[in-house]
Lab assay of single mutants.
Amino acid sequence: MALNTPQITPTKKITVRAIGEELPRGDYQRCPQCDMLFSLPEINSHQSAYCPRCQAKIRDGRDWSLTRLAAMAFTMLLLMPFAWGEPLLHIWLLGIRIDANVMQGIWQMTKQGDAITGSMVFFCVIGAPLILVTSIAYLWFGNRLGMNLRPVLLMLERLKEWVMLDIYLVGIGVASIKVQDYAHIQAGVGLFSFVALVILTTVTLSHLNVEELWERFYPQRPATRRDEKLRVCLGCHFTGYPDQRGRCPRCHIPLRLRRRHSLQKCWAALLASIVLLLPANLLPISIIYLNGGRQEDTILSGIMSLASSNIAVAGIVFIASILVPFTKVIVMFTLLLSIHFKCQQGLRTRILLLRMVTWIGRWSMLDLFVISLTMSLINRDQILAFTMGPAAFYFGAAVILTILAVEWLDSRLLWDAHESGNARFDD
């Protein structure tokens, strides 16, 4: 018995066209964080690309023209004298008006014999932002004059995390709450300039795509075929072959399989920071003279006294001054041990922890910024005066060393310790 099946006739004509040209192939790229070699397709503007294995951002879609970056830099340069030299806060102490600005706080630190601690604050609040705007201006002028731009481009990517104007702005709020127990506070004209400078700096850093600047100024022929001998440069993120001198053909720094002496430098910085954190938390970090009496505060006791007036601000200072430094030390110690013992479990967790400490590390400088600003506000000789204690130097040095330890660690070593050939990683 035959089955009668109805015929289905399409209502619209289906047209099949042959592909007349070869589909576009992607360029081969190595991930600078996990060293995976993959094919990167062509990316349009405002599109980002991520590593298929570790999800690290390979290409950032946010990109401004150099002219727009230069305009932002010149605007920031105009704001800087007002943000640093004009009063941020006014207080009335014992019937006398006192003005506080950024430069005055750094000068008070240096004047009291601790120039190293003052230079830490100076670099993060004044030096690094000033280098940022002058570097962008150098790129703008240098591109037109045919100057060598490689050193500036190499420095810009590392400079971003040292620009800490946003953290200093939080420190202004913390210092205001600490001082309000002794005097009446009012915002100064410099505060508005400083807030504007923070906003412009944040926007500029978020749109400063150094890798795209490398592509514009020093374009290189990408690798179009897969080759395990391809290496990625950690300076400019170019994937290719080393030249005859073993250097990256684009930025001219040595092109090595792994960062040289990464573990040794990381261990040295980490152990030194552990040693410095002990006096930083045991010795007094601030000293207040009130009517001839002397009151010393460690980091913890200062947080407890701050909690009596504002528990939320005390929580912020606790996280930045105690929780973050010790968390960074514990995480980095764990990561280094996992590399030495070739741990194969929990790779995803370790990668996330490394990215976390990379982002939060700079916030530990908050305590030094609060001390710097408070020193310029309260300084009335023996009637009422505020000065920093010996722990300030140890704390600042420990924070900087932990930042350097994270920067010096080559994250690809975590993958080397893991089993080879993993296309995915999980716990």
Rank of each mutant, 00 (worst) to 15 (best):
S193M: 02
Y168E: 11
I19T: 06
V170N: 03
R245F: 11
T334K: 14
M76C: 02
M103L: 05
I378Q: 00
P81H: 09
I19W: 05
A312Q: 15
L255T: 05
T15Q: 07
N148M: 03
M147L: 07
F393G: 11
L139R: 01
P87H: 05
A187R: 08
V313H: 00
A223P: 12
Q104W: 03
V329I: 10
I371K: 00
F393N: 06
G171A: 12
K57G: 04
C233P: 00
R62L: 06
L270M: 11
A268L: 04
G146Q: 05
G61H: 15
Q295F: 13
I19K: 08
K178W: 00
M164A: 03
D99C: 07
R256F: 08
P222N: 10
L69W: 07
P81E: 07
L335Q: 11
G61M: 11
G292P: 03
L93T: 01
V331S: 14
C266T: 13
A56D: 07
Y182F: 04
C266V: 12
W84P: 04
L414E: 03
I199S: 14
R53S: 07
W140F: 14
I177E: 02
V133C: 08
R350H: 10
T349N: 12
S39L: 11
A196R: 00
G292K: 08
C266E: 04
F369L: 04
W363L: 02
M375K: 10
Y138K: 02
W267G: 14
M164Q: 10
V195K: 02
A320D: 11
Q33L: 10
S206V: 13
P390Q: 09
L132I: 03
L77H: 05
R258F: 06
L130N: 13
L208K: 11
D367F: 00
L154P: 03
E215K: 15
G188Q: 12
S176N: 07
P41I: 08
P390T: 10
R225W: 13
A385I: 03
R53G: 09
T110S: 15
L368Q: 09
H46N: 07
T5N: 08
V324S: 04
L69R: 08
V357D: 05
L270C: 14
N101R: 01
C343P: 15
Y394E: 03
L89Q: 04
I253H: 04
G240A: 12
I351V: 10
E296A: 13
L354C: 13
I287H: 06
T117H: 02
I96N: 01
D381V: 01
R294T: 04
F82H: 06
M164S: 04
L234G: 12
M356S: 12
L69M: 07
T11N: 08
L79W: 13
P41H: 07
I322F: 13
G113D: 13
I116M: 13
L165G: 15
M365P: 00
I98H: 02
Q33F: 10
L300N: 09
R62E: 05
V232M: 14
L413I: 08
G361L: 01
Y50D: 15
G142M: 08
C54R: 00
K57S: 05
G171I: 01
L323Y: 02
F386T: 00
P222K: 14
D410N: 00
C233L: 00
G302C: 02
L197R: 00
R144N: 08
T327G: 15
S45K: 10
A56M: 08
K160M: 14
G146L: 03
T5S: 08
M388C: 04
W140M: 14
F38Q: 05
L384F: 07
L169G: 06
L353A: 13
M109R: 02
V163G: 04
L352I: 13
A187N: 09
W359E: 11
L156R: 04
L208I: 15
G105T: 01
Y289K: 01
T201Y: 09
V102L: 08
F386A: 01
Q344A: 12
V163D: 03
G113Q: 11
S119R: 01
L23D: 08
N148K: 04
I58Y: 05
R245V: 12
L205Y: 15
A137F: 15
L165S: 12
L335F: 06
F38R: 04
S305D: 01
L78F: 03
E407P: 02
I126G: 10
A280E: 11
D427I: 14
E296L: 13
L154H: 11
L277P: 02
L336E: 02
I96M: 08
T402Q: 03
S305C: 05
V313I: 13
P325H: 06
A397N: 04
F425G: 14
G235E: 07
D227C: 14
M120V: 04
Q180P: 00
G302A: 07
R424I: 06
G171P: 00
G26Y: 06
T117L: 02
E215A: 14
Q295M: 05
R231W: 07
F141K: 01
Q220G: 07
Q29I: 07
I58F: 05
K178Y: 01
S48D: 15
I253T: 08
L208E: 08
Y241S: 14
L353D: 01
M155H: 05
H90M: 04
Q47P: 04
P219E: 13
P41Y: 06
K265H: 09
H207F: 15
I199F: 14
L277N: 06
S176I: 09
H207V: 11
V324L: 15
H261V: 05
L153G: 12
R245P: 11
V195Q: 05
F238N: 09
S206I: 12
L23N: 09
K160H: 09
L69F: 10
V210L: 15
P32E: 05
L413Y: 11
F122D: 04
V406M: 08
Y394F: 07
L404G: 07
E228K: 12
Q112N: 08
M80Y: 05
P24V: 04
S45A: 07
L409M: 09
P390D: 10
T204K: 09
R424K: 13
A187F: 13
L154E: 02
F192M: 09
S305K: 09
F74Q: 04
L93F: 03
A272H: 02
C124P: 09
S262I: 03
N422P: 14
V203G: 14
E212C: 15
S39I: 13
L37P: 08
E407N: 12
M147T: 12
A223D: 14
M80V: 06
L401Y: 05
I199Y: 09
L306M: 09
W162K: 01
A137E: 06
L149Y: 03
P249N: 12
R412W: 00
N101C: 03
D63E: 11
R62P: 01
P222S: 13
P87G: 03
D27I: 06
L78D: 03
I319V: 15
A18V: 07
I351P: 10
L300E: 05
A49I: 06
L234Y: 15
A187Y: 12
S321H: 00
S273T: 15
V399I: 06
R158K: 12
R247N: 11
R355S: 14
W140H: 06
I253F: 03
C34F: 00
I199A: 13
Q33I: 11
A175W: 01
V275T: 13
A49K: 07
T15I: 07
K12S: 06
R68H: 03
A2M: 04
H184T: 03
Q47C: 04
R231L: 10
H418P: 13
V102S: 05
M103W: 03
L414F: 12
C54K: 00
F123G: 01
M147A: 05
F217S: 15
K178H: 07
L69V: 07
Q186C: 09
L145K: 05
P81D: 10
R25V: 08
W214L: 15
D181C: 01
V399Q: 04
G146C: 05
G26C: 07
D27R: 10
F395I: 06
D381H: 04
I360L: 12
F238I: 07
K328T: 00
G105E: 01
E42W: 04
T334W: 13
H340M: 09
I185A: 02
G95F: 08
V170C: 15
G396V: 02
Y289P: 01
T11H: 10
S420F: 10
T358D: 11
A70T: 12
G127T: 09
K13T: 04
D410I: 00
R412V: 00
I8F: 08
I378F: 01
W415P: 04
P6A: 07
